[in-house]
Design a protein around this nucleic acid. Sequence first.
DNA 1: GCCGTTTTCGGCCCGACTGTTTTCAGTCG
Length: 590
Amino acid sequence: MTNTEITRLLRQIAAAYSITDEKKYRFQIIAYQKAADNIESIHTEITDLYREGKLKTLPGIGASMQNYLQELCETGQVKHFEEVLATIPEAVYPLLDIPSFGPKKAYKLVTAFQLASPENVMQDVMSLAKKGKIAPLAGFGEKSQSDIIRALEEYALGKTKTARMVLPYANELAEKIVAYLKKSPDVLHVSPLGSLRRKRETVGDIDMAVATNHPAEVLTYFTQYPGLERVIEKGDRTSSIIVSSGKQIDLMVQPPEAFGSLLQHFTGSKAHNVHLREYALTKRLSLSEYGIRKKDDPEKKLTQYATEEAFYQALELDWIPPEIREDTGEIELARDKTLPKLLELKDMKGDFHIHPSYPIEPSHDMGRDSMETMLDKAISLNYEYLGFSEHHPSTGNHTKEQIMNILIKRKEYIDKLKEKYNKNIRIFSLLEIDIQPNGNLAMDDDALALLDGAIVSIHSGFSMDKQQITDRILKGLSHPKAKILAHPTGRLLNQRAGYEVDWERIFAFCEEHHKALEINASPLRLDLSDILVREAVKRKIPLFIDTDSHAVDQMELMEYGVSVARRGWATKDDIVNALPYNEVVEWFNK
DNA sequence: GCCGTTTTCGGCCCGACTGTTTTCAGTCG
């Protein structure tokens, strides 16, 4: 059973409890939802954690939930879950995937019309709505009936509760909205928040905050956005719209003197905010996007905060960088004033995964721009050094002798560049080398001897099972010249999941043999993921952040890799290419 | 059902908005 299936199951239990008796099961519902949220945010399969006896390490998973998950892993089902689920008609559950459908609404429809088939329930509801049979039901009406039709239509088109954008797409959309809002004279500040500000690898909705003294005018202006498809809601403080690309934009406004608490609230994450508010309650303080109220104050007077720093300060907490507001210990460290100083983009001193257009007759795609162009770019980025790492010459089209000739010529070329650029930037000569299905590197030792080091990676045979692919990686990485494992999961966000790897074995091997893992800064990859970065950082495994640039403009994508590193709590000491040149040389020679 | 820098028992974030209501239920973040 996959994590996705498990979280779905836990949410169904929560829904069943909501329908049965929301008051009685109030805290069970929260507990099941929290457990589902937490499982959703990890990258290790529950079945693996069970095998390794690590279920109890998961936050939000207590003794009961542990037993249930154990039973699930051993028998494929949980008696208690089956009993709870059976109290509700099974046709309710598929409807829960549709935005605007909650447990109550789904249950009312299913029972009112005795819908028995979970397979056909969507079509059944649609046809009932189109025949006008839903509007007369108690609690429904004409408007909610047409809303149901639209929700079902949009769901069929792929707008689900989980569709997410990759970061550059989200950034571009957010910039358009920001530019539009700034044209209004009533908008004093505007700032994209939510998961975009926290730099999550993908973003669902775009959240936007505005400071204004004229909220009504700003909200109206917002709903007149030129790319508008429709307005979902518009009130006194917030509004939500859908733009033509089908994406949702949420806007919240506050006066400038309360903008700090709004920034804090709307940045999230939800788990961070819930924990922060619970923590505040222990100090008898109640937090909201409006500010802070003292519980013991009979007048419940509101104190406002213009900046986020002041808001956290009022709780005697250090300001917490948005990237780590995920409720994984940051509040406690902020209280103790021991938050790590996270890596910053300006700390980066080089980039080692660079594909120039040098005629190497490569195995995979060649770069677009010359070594010189990319060196000039690196200088403009204030880098101290740059590593070239084209794909190796293809083995299918060349003899070993031809490959050696190509690589010797390349070495001579790079040596000349080293002389020419000596004053401005240092150069490393690497290659990106395939780890073949048998675990061997695609280049011979005499070819590897020409290099400062090799980046190794997998570009084929993704379907191997977890242990096979781990064996293969470790064999490839065990070559003395192999220093860095590039894009270590092979994933492409929103396109393919990547291969399964036994991280415990990879981490242990890297610890023991002085190998590094890459954080690939390409916003379509961003692997290692934030959670694995955090684990690697804890274990002091060396990390590189590389752009994998095939063209000079891609070298600017470093910021995305830095964001992942920050989300993984990395400081500049954790990143090899944030070290000065001499220390990097030492690192390669160690 | 979870959890602990007051607590292993007794708490559990806080609010906006819509549609169908006439004071609220449901969904969302």
